[in-house]
Structure formats: structure tokens, C-alpha cells
């Protein structure tokens, strides 16, 4: 938690296979990985799995609006009050969630690493300024700030990703900076400096490979946060109304009185999907944490 422990580098010296075997010795990591693979495959096949266009208003054979149908062979999860196929919406909703999760993860680890490395490597004024900045960002209330940003920038998935990235990087930056400071004490950095290596060479060749495991950890933690945030923003009505996402589905269900109509088939599945994907992210990063901080493992 406090990042005071020094990390042991996994893959680099002992070989990727050892690292992978140790990683998958953790049952959480296996479960997380399986869930991810299943959702990614479903996401790729979504266009084929969805029997209907998720926004299409459907009619029954006798020309009636196919509204609020219970689950059946034709509509596995029934239909919404406007006659849309819930199962089709659900599988199509995988894509925006994965998109938001993965891009935000990349963004957070990239920005966090950049700031952490700059602050730790150059120290002095650069360090002070960047660390003050992290203090300020950590003082911003998370969801309210995302909402205000979404309202100002306009509703779109990219903007949600942007908000998540600019709010979540400080945690990664702080830990990476701390790790870098211990790294800078080590002989090989000193040696590189004495032999006249340039800043960019030292950072790229000597520092980044050692920092990468931590960046990846913070990236993987951000996946879940980003997906949850996107769902909340959609639910509050600040999301992209043209993209069918799980958050949008839940907002649609809530606004269409699905709760009082007891249409559990409508609002339970999207929530469960979010739980699965986000929990899988937690499981994965848990296993990963055990790998790079073996001391914590008991």
C-alpha cells in the first residue's frame, strides 16, 4: 500500500515463463484472466451475437410494439419498454466498457509514469511543482469533477477517458517517483551518469524498464475505475446518448420505471456485467501485485 517496499523485477532476468507460472499460481489471477478473455471474445463477436440492432424498435408478428417482453427464445433477456432487445444491448455494451477501461489504463500509466519519472529524475523545482500539482488534483472530488468536465466538454466516451486520466494519474506518479528515488541510489545509474550517458538514454535504457512493472500495475487498477466512472456518468445523464453502454442501459431502465415494474431482466444483467469486468480487473492486479511485491504474499 505504501510503496515503501522495493520491487523485485519479475520477467527480466528469471524469464517470462517463470513469471507467468508464478502469476497463474494465484487463483484470483486465473479467475480474473478467464473473465477478461471471455468478455474480450464476446466483445469481438458482439456484432454477430446480437440478433438485433440494439437501438432498433421491434414489433411483434401481429404488428404490436414489442415492449417490455419477458425473456424468451426470441429475446433472451426480453425487451425494453420501447421494444429494444436487451441481450443485444448487453453484448454491444461490452465494447464501450472495454474501450474506456483500456484507453484510460494506458493514459493513466503513461501520464503517471511521465510525471513520476520527471519529478524523481530531475528533482528540485520540477519535483516541487509537479508534487504540488498532484496534491491539488488529489484534492479534487472525483465524480463531481468528472461531471463538470463532461458537461463542459460535451458527452462522449473520449471525454470520460480524458477526465479519468487527468484525475487518476497522481497516485501512480507518487509511487513511481518514490520508486525512482530508490532506484537512483543504485550503482548502475551512477555508473551510466559517470560514463556520460545522456538524460534521455539513462531514462529510456536504465530507468524505464525498472519502472514499467509499477506503471502496469497502476494501469491495471485504473481499468476498473474507468469503467465504473463511465457507467456513473452515463447513469447521471452526462454520457453519450448514441452509444449503447451498460451505464446507458441502467439509466434507461431507471428512467423508464423498470424498477417499479420489477423488470429485473432489464437492470440486473448490465450491473452484473460491470461487477464481473471490474472485479476481474481487481483480481488481475491482485495477482500482479503478488508478483512484483513478493514480500506481501503470505
Amino acid at each position: 500500500m505504501d510503496g515503501g517496499s522495493t520491487i523485485v523485477l519479475p520477467a527480466k532476468r528469471r524469464g517470462l515463463r517463470t513469471a507467468l507460472r508464478r502469476y497463474f499460481a494465484d487463483p484470483y489471477a486465473v479467475v480474473g484472466c478467464v473473465i477478461y478473455v471471455v468478455f474480450i471474445v464476446l466483445g469481438i463477436l458482439a456484432g454477430w451475437l446480437a440478433q438485433y440492432d440494439p437501438t432498433e424498435i421491434l414489433f411483434t408478428d401481429d404488428g404490436q410494439l414489442a415492449a417490455s417482453l419477458p425473456p424468451s427464445a426470441a429475446h433472451w433477456l426480453g425487451t425494453t419498454n420501447l421494444g429494444r432487445d436487451i441481450f443485444s444491448q448487453l453484448v454491444m455494451g461490452i465494447r464501450p466498457s472495454l474501450f474506456v477501461g483500456i484507453t484510460a489504463a494506458v493514459g493513466v500509466s503513461a501520464l503517471g509514469t511521465a510525471v513520476g519519472v520527471l519529478a524523481g529524475y530531475f528533482g528540485g523545482v520540477v519535483d516541487t511543482l509537479l508534487m504540488r500539482l498532484t496534491d491539488v488534483v488529489l484534492g479534487l472530488p472525483f465524480l463531481p469533477f468528472v461531471i463538470v468536465l463532461a458537461a463542459l466538454l460535451g458527452p462522449s466516451l473520449q471525454n470520460v477517458v480524458f477526465s479519468v486520466v487527468i484525475l487518476l494519474w497522481p497516485n501512480a506518479a507518487r509511487i513511481i517517483r518514490a520508486q525512482l528515488l530508490t532506484l537512483m541510489q543504485r550503482q548502475f545509474i551512477e555508473a551510466a551518469r559517470v560514463t556520460g550517458a545522456s538524460h534521455s538514454r539513462i531514462i529510456l535504457v536504465h530507468i524505464l524498464p525498472n519502472i514499467l512493472p509499477l506503471s502496469l500495475l497502476y494501469g491495471s487498477i485504473s481499468v476498473g475505475w474507468a469503467i465504473l466512472t463511465q457507467a456513473s456518468v452515463s447513469f447521471l445523464g452526462f454520457g453519450d446518448q448514441d452509444t449503447i453502454s451498460w451505464g446507458f442501459m441502467l439509466q434507461d431502465a431507471y428512467a423508464s420505471q423498470a424498477l417499479s415494474q420489477a423488470q429485473y431482466n432489464w437492470f440486473v444483467p448490465p450491473g452484473l456485467c460491470i461487477v464481473f469486468v471490474v472485479a476481474a480487473g481487481f483480481f488481475l492486479s491482485r495477482g500482479y501485485e503478488n508478483l512484483i511485491f513478493p514480500k506481501l504474499k503470505q
Partner: peptide, 26 residues
């Protein structure tokens, strides 16, 4: 432990919706 991790992964508003459907409307 898995149960607790699952509650951390569940969107708050969705938990609220399920509770509403069961305990208020149900």
C-alpha cells in the same frame, strides 16, 4: 474476500436500483 471485492466492483447506483426494486417497489 471475493464477495467483498465484488461489492467494490459494483456501481453504487446499481446496488441502489436493486435495493429499490426489492425493498421499496417489491
Amino acid at each position: 474476500i471475493p464477495l467483498v471485492l465484488a461489492t467494490r466492483a459494483a456501481p453504487e447506483f446499481w446496488i441502489g436500483m436493486v435495493l429499490l426494486a426489492v425493498f421499496a417497489f417489491g
